[in-house]
């Protein structure tokens, strides 16, 4: 039969004493631990919703950044004319129903502008 070594004996004794002191914890400490544990587990719900939000926020941010980047990289549409700065009236034209027809004939109007002609009129 093996007898415990000094080291094993010390470990065993230390463990027994420690377990005894754990069992002797008072009610106040146990109550506090109980409350803290429940609060921590409840925090799991909060962290999950936070994780969900934290996933959506960067995802939508990345998507928006990608759209902006695509527009910047693509640059203005080259229609053969100097478009100049965009004004509010340009937006009105774009919003207007008739503007779709105008957009289809954009090349014609560009040529018209370059040649200094009025539709149905004469040069210069």
């Amino acid at each position: 039969m093996n007898t415990p070594t000094k080291r094993e004996g010390l470990e065993e004794r230390a463990k027994q004493l420690f377990d005894g002191s754990v069992d002797d914890l008072d009610a106040a400490a146990l109550s506090r631990l109980n409350r803290d544990r429940h609060a921590a587990v409840e925090a799991l719900q909060g962290s999950r919703s936070a994780v969900r939000w934290s996933l959506w926020v960067p995802a939508s941010g990345i998507a928006a950044a990608a759209i902006v980047m695509a527009l910047v990289m693509r640059g203005p549409v080259d229609v053969g004319v100097d478009a100049g700065p965009m004004t509010a009236s340009d937006f009105d034209i774009l919003i207007d129903d008739e503007s779709f027809e105008m957009l289809e004939e954009l090349e014609f109007y560009s040529w018209l502008d370059a040649a200094g002609l009025e539709p149905g009129g004469n040069v210069g």
Partner: peptide, 9 residues
Amino acid sequence: QDAMIKLVR
């Protein structure tokens, strides 16, 4: 308490 919360989160 801090360890509990950090572990769970």
